[in-house]
């Protein structure tokens, strides 16, 4: 087994495009789940409306900038529609409604009824030429040895990590303000916040909407990289990836989504390499075939999510004091 290759591939994944996209997506979810305590299982819907908002706008002759605005507006509206009926109910109801709403949306987008606008299951392609035309980086490979990326990937990575930096700065400003303190108070105890005169519903709605808008940015970024949106990309699994990223990094921590996403993608690629090698070398005594690697990885993903939630709910690097409080 080529350990060096496996490690380099894993390292590339940790700084690559999907890691940036999931860091961004997780920042939005972190605002909702980590800071406000909202169990939003329909985060993927925000990513979807963001991506489709942009793709459809460009498809109809609008500019990408207009598309970005449309995508964000759609995500804000989605948050409003989802939040108003559910945010007064208990956490588990929000989880059920949001996961259902995400699925309804996906069914609508892929339906023949919406096809004139969304192009049904085939989706929309090649809407980000404007962005790639701006690429100032000369053709070539950049990096050291095998740790290299082509000019297109570098350009997308600059956009992705640039977005992550800007949005993190925004979150820094927001969560360190009294507004941020109030949403954390709501996460700890809604009734206490109410008794202190805080409009809990209003704060939760704002958090859901803003987190959704950040999710929409993540969706757009992924769509730009792939130059492609199709409805069946946006399955609930994506939400659970984002949850895992948030939990690895530590819910309610400013940089958690970034470290979480890098660790997540590193381990993902690493595991993939190791298991592929193991199957080739027949370390499993022929119990598993190459086609089993995908499912096994998902099962291990489940084990990891359970383990994190039970033993490290404050993230891999959660503070000791917070752990103690959690155990009480």
């Amino acid at each position: 087994m080529d350990w060096v290759k496996i490690l380099i591939d894993a390292g590339r994944a940790a700084v690559g495009v999907p890691a940036a996209a999931y860091a961004l997506s997780a920042i939005g979810l972190n605002l909702q789940f980590g800071y406000t305590g909202l169990l939003n299982f329909g985060h993927v819907a925000s990513m979807m409306v963001g991506a489709y908002g942009m793709a459809i706008t460009v498809d109809r002759g609008g500019s990408m900038w207009l598309g970005v605005i449309v995508g964000i507006l759609l995500a804000l509206i989605l948050g409003l529609i989802l939040g108003i009926p559910t945010l007064r109910l208990r956490a588990d109801y929000l989880a059920i409604v949001t996961i259902a709403a995400g699925e309804i949306l996906r069914i609508l987008v892929r339906s023949s009824w919406a096809e004139p606008v969304t192009n049904g299951i085939l989706g929309i392609q090649a809407f980000a030429d404007e962005f790639f035309d701006l690429n100032p980086i000369p053709v070539g490979l950049y990096g050291i040895g095998r740790f290299r990326f082509d000019e297109r990937t570098v350009w997308v990575m600059i956009l992705g990590w640039g977005l992550v930096a800007v949005v993190t700065l925004f979150m820094w400003k927001l969560t360190r303000s009294p507004w941020g303190r109030t949403i954390r108070a709501i996460r700890e105890d809604e009734d206490a916040a109410l008794s202190l005169g805080k409009n809990v519903f209003g704060y939760k709605l704002q958090s859901l909407m803003v987190g959704g808008a950040i999710g929409a940015l993540a969706g757009m970024f992924l769509a730009i990289d792939q130059q492609n949106v199709t409805p069946d990309t946006y399955i609930p699994l994506l939400t659970f990836y984002a949850f895992t990223v948030v939990i690895i990094g530590g819910p309610g921590s400013l940089l958690g989504p970034i470290t979480g996403s890098m660790i997540f993608w590193f381990l993902f690629e690493f595991l993939d390499g190791v298991m592929t090698g193991a199957v080739l070398n027949d370390w499993f005594f022929g119990w598993f075939e190459a086609t089993d690697i995908g499912p096994i990885r998902f099962a291990l993903f489940g084990v990891g999510l359970m383990w994190l939630m039970i033993y490290r709910p404050q993230g891999l690097f959660g503070s000791h004091e917070e752990m103690l409080i959690d155990a009480q």
Binding site: Q226, N228, L300, G304, W307
Partner: peptide
């Protein structure tokens, strides 16, 4: 538990691409 820590790593590559 370390093994489990490594475990949560899994992702399908997003189902996209090759759309004829």
């Amino acid at each position: 538990m370390l093994l489990a820590a490594i475990a949560f790593l899994a992702i399908v590559s997003m189902p996209l691409a090759a759309l004829a």
